[in-house]
Design a protein around this nucleic acid. Sequence first.
DNA 1: AGTAAGTCAAACAGATGTGTTCGAGTTGTG
DNA 2: CACAACTCGAACACATCTGTTTGACTTACT
Lengths: 192, 192
Amino acid sequence: MSHSGARRADARQNVDKILGAAVACLSRNADASVSEIAQAAGVGRVTLYGHFPSREALVEAAVMRVLSEGEKVLGGLDLTGDPREALNVLIRSSWLLLAQASAVLEAALASLPPGRVQELHAKPAQRVDDLIRRGQAEGVFRTDLPADWLVSVLHHVLHGAALDVAAGQLDRADAPHFISETILAAYTRSGT
Amino acid sequence: MSHSGARRADARQNVDKILGAAVACLSRNADASVSEIAQAAGVGRVTLYGHFPSREALVEAAVMRVLSEGEKVLGGLDLTGDPREALNVLIRSSWLLLAQASAVLEAALASLPPGRVQELHAKPAQRVDDLIRRGQAEGVFRTDLPADWLVSVLHHVLHGAALDVAAGQLDRADAPHFISETILAAYTRSGT
DNA sequence: AGTAAGTCAAACAGATGTGTTCGAGTTGTG
DNA sequence: CACAACTCGAACACATCTGTTTGACTTACT
């Protein structure tokens, strides 16, 4: 097991099921146990340990999984136009994925060395970061607040919206519109 | 122990230290153990159990503590003027307290019956809720998004700012200004 | 000063989680 | 078919957390 060489088909399939379950469980509950994840994957706990040597390794693999999914979706988007429109497209097409990724990363923060998480997160986050900085440079987004803060606001509003949806306090269909309207307004200086 | 009658001075003092430590620990880590809280309070674990029959009871007491602190501060504010100015005052004077209360409530959510938390939280939250609804009614805040969502946004931005400060990614002194500027802009329809 | 109230460390029981081993059963693949 | 790869439940050791008891110690209050 855990040999680089070709593994049996069902084994590869199980690894896939486990990673999917891990992402789902960890984005719902950062403290999800290994048993819980194994059960959600329809797999025995021992089988899981056959593929991942420790919970920590599993969490890291789940992070890489959700990040690569994110890369795939974000890579298919055209974010080169008007920053406002680009941000709108970004939010409407993948807010749920971004929120899920954010939740898994937060879960990872509790069981992985803190530097490791930011290291993994750095590259994919760059896309959003660049978009916001470009919007500032083009004078479309406000510059009286630092880009880091604007990124953080987007991050936390997305995460919050996901929590609200999970708690039944927000209709999933309303979320992208609400988020987009809120963020675009927040990124423009208020007319006091 | 746990007699309604007059208790010794040092006992009351210890209860106070324990509650303070519980609020501090739980707002930093929702899963803080009883030992951790006892140690932070400078008190033995057994002593803590002498005052609170269970972890659950301790968490509930910590929630009541932070909420009553919040009531005290919010009660001393004049929020009757221009909703924008009132919200500005509210954020600048007590964003940290609000964020801490929010974190403790989130911690409580993991160990208390879900209904109980919202029940405890309901009355103090009403103040902020009312302010936002008044702002909408007076035409100062946008009405194309529901008040519940605006409240939720404030909530999550506050929480996020507290996390950023704790992570060293945001200067504590900058936070109130950033939050206030962001929220006021978000509460106004963007000039697309 | 005397007494009750309070504190505390050590040790216990029980629950839960992680990680491992064993042995038997199952299934993909050559 | 045959064998290796894989799966899986049961049980283990180890750690951590909750909650309790015991017994000795200290301290507030009258």
